Amino acid sequence: MRGVPRAGLVGGVAAVIIVVDQLSKHWALRRLGDFSTIEVVGSLQLRLTWNTGTAFSLGDDLNLGPIIAVLALLVVGWLLWSGHSARRPGAVAAGLVAGGAVGNLIDRALRSGPNGQPVGFMGGAVVDFVDLQWWPVFNVADAGIVVGAFLLVVVSMFEPRTDAPGDDPPAGDDG
């Protein structure tokens, strides 16, 4: 079946990721804005950074971050339309990716640049603050995208094949 059989689940998961992401970024700006660091456990620390590039701060000077986020949303749209989100795990994965992409797009659209520098529309910096010290600094939206993408790969490996693209899942299968 073509369409959006689990759009509510995708939207619900995305909404949770967006809210938690934006609240955590607001907290990080208030608590870590003075460039302080909070040691949590092991190598995990909370430290405010600004990402003007793509994922993991790659390409800071290329301004590709907004393009990548829009591409992620297009992938989620395709997942919904193609039926890959018809089962619960696929819908959750799509919601994680969508919520993460929107969370970071909100930063790009509504935040200033690092240190309050004025920027044009979609030129804002993404707030990152989770620092493992052995991985690039990230945020809740980034975690949603990475976990969602990983889950999509796992789900696609175990998804039963159908005779034709877009066929309905077996009757009574809720995923």
Rank of each mutant, 00 (worst) to 15 (best):
V10N: 00
G11S: 10
G11Q: 11
G12V: 09
G12E: 02
V13H: 05
V16Q: 01
I18C: 06
V19K: 01
Q22C: 15
H26G: 02
H26I: 12
W27D: 04
W27N: 12
A28K: 05
R30V: 06
R31H: 13
R31Q: 14
L32W: 14
G33A: 01
D34N: 07
F35T: 14
F35G: 15
S36I: 03
S36P: 05
S36Y: 09
T37G: 02
I38Y: 08
I38S: 00
E39H: 08
G42C: 03
L44T: 01
L44S: 05
L44G: 10
L44H: 04
L44I: 03
Q45I: 00
L46D: 00
W50K: 08
W50Q: 02
N51L: 12
T52S: 09
G53E: 10
T54I: 12
A55G: 13
A55Y: 02
F56I: 09
F56K: 00
L58K: 10
L58T: 12
L58H: 13
L58P: 15
G59D: 05
G59K: 07
D60V: 12
D60R: 15
D61P: 14
L62C: 11
N63W: 10
G65N: 05
G65C: 05
P66S: 13
V70P: 03
V70E: 02
L73F: 06
L73T: 09
L73H: 01
L74I: 12
V75N: 14
V76Q: 07
W78C: 01
L79I: 04
L79N: 11
L80H: 12
W81K: 14
S82V: 13
H84P: 11
S85W: 15
R88H: 09
P89M: 12
P89F: 09
P89E: 03
G90I: 06
A91Y: 03
V92P: 13
V92F: 14
V92I: 15
A93G: 09
A94S: 10
A94F: 07
A94Q: 11
A98I: 07
G99P: 15
V102A: 02
V102K: 09
N104Q: 03
D107W: 07
D107C: 00
R108S: 11
A109P: 02
R111T: 06
S112A: 13
G113W: 13
P114Y: 04
P114D: 05
N115W: 02
N115E: 03
G116Y: 01
G116L: 11
G116V: 04
G116C: 04
Q117K: 15
Q117A: 06
P118G: 08
P118H: 08
V119P: 01
G123N: 07
G123P: 11
G124L: 15
A125N: 14
A125S: 03
V126K: 10
V126W: 00
F129L: 01
D131W: 00
L132H: 06
W134Y: 15
W135I: 02
W135K: 13
W135R: 00
W135H: 14
V137N: 01
V137Q: 03
N139T: 03
V140S: 09
V140H: 05
A141D: 06
A141S: 10
A141R: 00
D142M: 08
A143G: 05
I145D: 10
I145W: 13
V146S: 02
V146Y: 13
G148I: 12
